[in-house]
């Protein structure tokens, strides 16, 4: 079914009611981080440092945009492969970051953590960088500016299209090898 999810979400029930295969349109605030951000967040958690944004109620989008062109909010902005974040995702879910947006299947450790913490994994359409760029209304660097295209960003998105690839019960339409 088609759903709309407003971010930040207010109650975890909003994540729990989404089912694998649902078409989900996101609107509101969405944070962005990929490989190096995950590595750094992992270190910050291990060392007990304060986190650069509030995890609870928010989601993270695995993405590294191409450079901003004149007249645009940012460049192409499609998802990157989620599996590279798998070593870190359970730790982030434990700290309250339950909503993940990326592309491709996840490893079992992530699915198990999703069942434990009521996580939700949405798949954005891979390679559709121009389409997603048009659904992003603002983009600001929150932390790690020195990482360039890998910096931690805060986006405002509108009708950002995804498919629920793994729901909080662990169900998934994915091809699993």
């Amino acid at each position: 079914m088609e759903r709309r999810l407003r971010l930040p979400y207010e109650s975890i029930d909003e994540l729990r009611e989404v089912r694998a295969g649902d078409y989900v349109l996101l609107s509101g605030t969405l944070y962005v981080g990929r490989d190096q951000v995950h590595k750094r967040l992992g270190i910050m958690i291990e060392e007990g440092e304060s986190l650069p944004f509030q995890f609870k109620g928010n989601g993270i989008y695995y993405m590294g945009p191409s450079p901003k062109m004149p007249g645009f909010v940012l460049g192409a902005a499609g998802p990157t492969t989620s599996q590279r974040m798998d070593p870190y995702s359970p730790m982030l879910m434990e700290k309250g970051l339950l909503l993940m947006v990326g592309k491709g299947p996840r490893k079992n450790n992530v699915v198990e953590a999703m069942k434990r913490y009521s996580g939700l994994y949405l798949q954005a359409f891979g390679g559709c960088g121009a389409l997603y760029s048009q659904r992003i209304k603002s983009a600001d660097v929150v932390a790690f500016e020195e990482l360039g295209p890998e910096a931690l960003l805060r986006l405002t998105v509108e009708d950002f299209p995804t498919i629920c690839a793994i729901d909080s019960t662990g169900a998934s339409p994915f091809f699993l090898s």
């Binding site: 590294g64 191409s66 062109m69 645009f72 192409a76 359409f125 559709c128 960088g129 121009a130």
Partner: peptide, 27 residues
């Protein structure tokens, strides 16, 4: 689901061509 993905791909191709944005951020 595959139909939705393929439709998004075709839309993305049109948007890239109309706006001059790259098809994908990974150039």
């Amino acid at each position: 689901n595959a139909g939705i993905v393929l439709k998004a791909i075709l839309d993305n191709i049109s948007i890239a061509s109309e706006t001059g944005l790259p098809l994908c951020q990974d150039t």
